[in-house]
Write a protein that binds this DNA or RNA. Sequence first.
RNA 1: GCACCACUAGCUCAACUGGUAGAGCAACGGACUCUUAAUCCGUGGGUUCCGGGUUCGAGUCCCGGGUGGUGCACCA
Length: 490
Amino acid sequence: MKRRLEELEELKKLGINPYPYEYPVNAYSDEILRNFRDEDPPMNVSIAGRIMSIRRMGKATFSHIQDSRGKIQIYFKKDVLGEKYDILKLLDIGDIIGVKGEVFRTRTGEVTVKVDDYQILAKSIRPLPVVKEKIDEHGNRIVYDPFTDKEMRYRQRYVDLIVNPEVKQVFIKRAKIISTIREILDSHGYIEVETPILQPVYGGATARPFVTHHNALDMDLYLRIADELYLKRLIVGGFDGVYEIGKDFRNEGMDRMHNPEFTMLELYVAYKDYNWMMEFTENLIYNVCLRVNGTSKIKFGDNEIDLTPPWKRVPMFELLKQYTGENLEGKSEDELRAIARRLNVDVSSKIGVGKIIDEIFSELVQPNLIQPTFVIDYPIEMSPLAKRHRSKPHLVERFEVIISGMEVCNAFSELNDPIDQRYRFEEQARLRAQGDEEAMTIDEDFIRALEYGMPPTAGLGIGIDRLVMILTNQKTIRDVILFPHMRPEK
RNA sequence: GCACCACUAGCUCAACUGGUAGAGCAACGGACUCUUAAUCCGUGGGUUCCGGGUUCGAGUCCCGGGUGGUGCACCA
């Protein structure tokens, strides 16, 4: 770095501003490579990018520069550039330059820009990890000494993005996934809304919140753990379909599937139930995958996953029976604890019936569900916002979508009976008193809204990060979040 | 929060049972006007994550701490 600061000073002494204001770009690496024809008249281009390699050979120098679209070789010649050629020695890998020149094909066949003139656009004073690569005879990219240090890749994502082009592709695809979801939802006439992230009462999920403080009001506020209760208020307010794509925050552990802040899509549609929502969900995800990947059969880890609808719909208790050999339906808390012991599943003494079942399910059933599966009809105790099942009163009309063992969606026929809702909240309060810190707190204003009357409604939540993981074949959530949460350095 | 593993030059990695810390790339100097992991000659580069301890001697062994990874716990 010291050496580069000296170069910076030398440039300034020569009257060259190493940080100029703009540069007229009229072409990109990928277009130039794609459009070049040997028989066409020579084409002049003006491109800008970062120097990724330099091969100096006395009075001629080859270099590759990388722009937003890819890389292209450039060729400097002493007899073309004269004195300006000598300034090249002050350039380094990592510097950003603009070059103008004619496109030609080298003797070895690579389409290259022969530089008539160049300009330094930003001097890099911190050395970039140098990744060397070669394209083999099959067109495969072989990388030597790849930049792999996970900690540095996540902390200095900018470096990761410069040096590892496949990382950039994941995030471009992520953007496309989200914009495609928007297009589809908008085309159905659903209204995108924004609801509070700072909430006086948090709800809509069972999780521990982040707490912050509002100074002027001298009160604690919570970062939302879900959008649910506000979006349902909007259904009460007369919207037929609303959705929100935004960050939720949960004060829980971090691992391959969890980041403390994550992106969630929630959608609520009036006059529909969870059966309708299942069909909607499988079509949504199928179409997003088609548009983004061009196919509905994708690889995830060692598995091939087929997202073509219809997806299997299986009641939760049926899956439990299938994978554990035990019938858990209608069992008391004591009986469930005994079964858990028999199945070698550890359950905390603080949790109730719903969570014991959930525990057994996530340990013994969920990892086996690789192809997209609607798990339907959950016990009422673990779903305080869902409507009671129309024919089985101890269950609710709820589904989750499991893909590759990962929970990607959660949805219900929404509970719109204000009396039942109050009763369910009170049950949660009882669990909380028992020591379940994640049980929900009662939201009086939400109940008041239901008291005015909410139409029958279907609601859906999709974990966007996890969906992106599946559609881009990434095994950890950190690889689909640009700046995953990290402990502070030092 | 717990367990296991990792941390050595800018990057990727070596260093046997404890015995002078090394290579490739990058950097620096030189040669070279079609190279492409350019090549050839030469040079410099280290708080071995941090702090203690054991030892004549610690990158290596022990204790404590940090960060990361993986798993568990926790997690609509």
